[in-house]
Each structure stands twice: as structure tokens, then as C-alpha cells.
């Protein structure tokens, strides 16, 4: 298995991007976007997560098996969120209190 090592420059750029995105999150918190506030915050968080996983955790140059593990983890998180929202999103459809 070949070990790919990114250059210091790449790591530095990723680090700067992460700092920038953190500042952006803070800045956006002061702007009232209504229902889009959590959407924007989560989008920025997802971008940061991808940067960390792909570069710092070397997923970009990993084997297929490692990628499968990462994808599996994300898929399971998606199951958790999706099926939980299946409850929260459909509450009240029957018009019966508590249902």
C-alpha cells in the first residue's frame, strides 16, 4: 500500500480554509436569515468536516475499504437523522393531539 503525503502547503491551505469557515460561522450568527440560519450553519459545518476527513484524515488517498467505512458511518448518521425526522416531520398530520 502506497502512502501518499500531502505537502505542507496543502495542509496550510486547508488550515486557513478551516479558520475562515469558523469566522464565517461566527459572522453568519449575527445575521438574521430566518429559517435558513441552521441550514447555513450546518452547510459550513459539513464543508469543514469534509476538509478534515479528506485531507487531515487522508481519506482522499485511502483505500476503497477505508472509504467504504467512512461512507458507512455517514450513511448510518443519515439513517438516524432521516428516520427521526420521519417522526418530527409528520407529527400533527392526523390533527389528533399528540399524533
Amino acid at each position: 500500500m502506497t502512502q501518499h503525503i500531502d505537502s505542507v502547503k496543502t495542509y496550510a491551505l486547508v488550515f486557513i480554509a478551516l479558520v475562515f469557515l469558523t469566522l464565517l460561522t461566527t459572522a453568519v450568527a449575527y445575521v438574521d436569515l430566518g429559517p435558513f440560519s441552521p441550514v447555513v450553519a450546518l452547510a459550513i459545518a459539513t464543508a469543514k468536516m469534509l476538509l478534515v476527513a479528506l485531507f487531515f484524515m487522508h481519506v482522499r488517498h485511502s483505500t476503497q475499504l477505508t472509504r467504504l467505512v467512512v461512507t458507512g458511518g455517514l450513511l448510518w448518521l443519515a439513517i438516524l437523522i432521516f428516520l427521526t425526522l420521519a417522526d418530527f416531520g409528520t407529527r400533527g398530520w392526523l390533527g389528533v393531539p399528540g399524533r
Binding site: 439513517i79 416531520g89 409528520t90 399524533r99
Partner: peptide, 22 residues
């Protein structure tokens, strides 16, 4: 086993539709 947890919530004000799916 990861797709069925909502059957513990049938009487916990979980949405009826989610209950059906679970």
C-alpha cells in the same frame, strides 16, 4: 436492527406515520 428503533416509541407521541414505518 438499526431501522426499527421507533417500535419502542409507539405510545410516546411519536407520529402515527413514523410508527407505521417502524
Amino acid at each position: 436492527g438499526f431501522l426499527v428503533w421507533g417500535h419502542h416509541l409507539f405510545v410516546s407521541t411519536q407520529s402515527f406515520f413514523a410508527g407505521m414505518v417502524f
